[in-house]
Structures are given as C-alpha cells and as structure tokens.
C-alpha cells in the first residue's frame, strides 16, 4: 500500500492538566473513507482539532500525504488540501450564500468553479444565493458547508459530526453526497455519532475511547469487536 494520506503517530494533547489524547495512532489510506466512532468524551473532536491545526498537540506527529505537518496552522493546512468541516454550524451566518462560497476559493479553486459545483450539486443553494446563510435551515447550512468539500477537491476531507441535529432525510442526502465525494477518489475521515450512518459509506472504521484508538479495521471487524470495547451505543 502506498503512503497513507493521513498518519497520526502517538499523538498526545491536553486541556490544561487534563490529558485528552493519550497516544493516538491512526492511518487513513489514500482514497479510503474511514469512520471514527467512540463515546462521549473519547477525544474524537480533540483529535479533529489537532489534525486540522486548531489545537497544538503536546507530543506526537501528524503526517499529511507523507509530510510531517505537526504544528502547522489550520490556514496552511487548508491551503495544503485539508478540508475540515467542523461540527455544528460551519458557515458564516452573516454572509450570504454566495459570499460563503467565494471564501471557499482560498483552497486554490477559482471562485466561479466553486459556485458552479455547489449550485449543480445543491440547486437549492442557487435559489438562495443572496440570502444570509444564518437564516437558512440547518440542513441547507450543512449543504453549504459540504460545498466546500465538493468544490475544493481536497487531499483529505475531515468531517466532524455531520449529522448533528439534522433530520434523518437530510442526513441521508448529505451522506449520499459524501459517497459521491468518496467515489471521486477523495480520502475521508468521518467522525459520526450515528455509527450506522457512517459505516454505510466507509471502507474502514476505528473506535476511540479514553483518548486512544482501541479498535480499527474493516467495518464488519470493528462491529464484532465493539461488544468488547465500546460503542457508546449508537450502532
């Protein structure tokens, strides 16, 4: 197998004196979709923050496409081709849809191309191009957020709790989009509370607990070991 697109080696991170990541090892193969599951407080979101450069690790390394990027700022990583869709509202509420889309061109794709891609995938966004993003429904906001993943052709896509607070139909729609992106060859690391939803589109899965990866492998394998580890329930 070639070099993994993302490799995390013995990563530690802490908030003050409380260590949240206690030696995380994780590799996402190029072109694969990996689901990262785990219970409340396992450290998943902290891991996303460290990988995306929003938080400094205390020790350990992060390799992106074979290059050690530990300590790089999140804007540098974004320009290197890492596309992070953080949990919660990941659009600028007081900017219009179109302005949100234009800002996505920082990743290197011309803004016209971003607009084209976004509007062809989500015609609804085109109808609302002059509306403030914050006045749209949660699902529409998440579509807007996903447009960045679609348009920027990232080396790695990092999705954090895409489905949070969204109606099932919309979650399904969003995951169809994830599947489309995956089919185009983009590597994806996907953190999800609804394991079943995430496993539908993933090639590999890993389970995090207590700040470590406690199981990883094919979705079926992971599910088998889950009874011993933790699923935190959301199967």
């Amino acid at each position: 197998m070639s070099i993994p697109i993302l490799e995390v080696v013995d990563l530690h991170a802490a908030y003050g004196r409380i260590e949240v990541l206690r030696g995380v090892d994780l590799a996402v193969p190029k072109g694969a979709v990996m689901a990262l599951l785990g219970p409340n407080g396992a450290g998943k979101s902290t891991l996303v923050k460290v990988i995306s450069g929003q938080k400094k690790p205390t020790s350990g390394d992060v390799h992106l496409g074979g290059v050690n990027v530990r300590g790089a700022g999140s804007e540098e990583l974004a320009r290197l081709g890492l596309c992070t869709v953080p949990e919660g509202r990941s659009v600028f509420p007081n900017l219009t849809v179109e302005e949100n889309l234009r800002l996505m061109s920082y990743a290197g794709v011309p803004s016209e191309a971003v607009l084209d891609t976004a509007y062809s995938y989500f015609p609804r966004l085109s109808e609302r191009r002059h509306q403030l993003a914050g006045t749209m429904s949660g699902g529409e906001q998440q579509m807007l957020a996903m447009s960045r993943a679609l348009a920027s052709d990232p080396a790695l896509l990092l999705l954090d709790e895409l489905s949070m607070g969204l109606a099932p139909l919309i979650v399904d729609e969003l995951y169809d989009t994830v599947a489309q992106i995956a089919a185009s060859g983009v590597s994806i690391l996907c953190i999800e509370q609804f394991a079943r939803t995430a496993l539908r589109v993933s090639d590999y899965a890993a389970v995090m607990s207590g700040g470590r990866i406690v199981a990883s492998g094919e979705p079926a394998e992971v599910l088998e070991t889950m009874s011993d580890v933790i699923l935190g329930g959301a199967a």
Binding site: S52, G53, Q54, G73, S74, E75, A78, R79, T84, P86, S90, V91, F92, P93, N94, L95, E99, L103, M104, Y106, A107, R148
Partner: peptide
Amino acid sequence: ASVDNPELLRLFG
C-alpha cells in the same frame, strides 16, 4: 467572515 468566526475562516484557508 472573521467577525463571525475567525476559527472557521482559518479552516477555509
């Protein structure tokens, strides 16, 4: 955008 959320702007690049 930076008024709204500077952290997100960073993720945008």
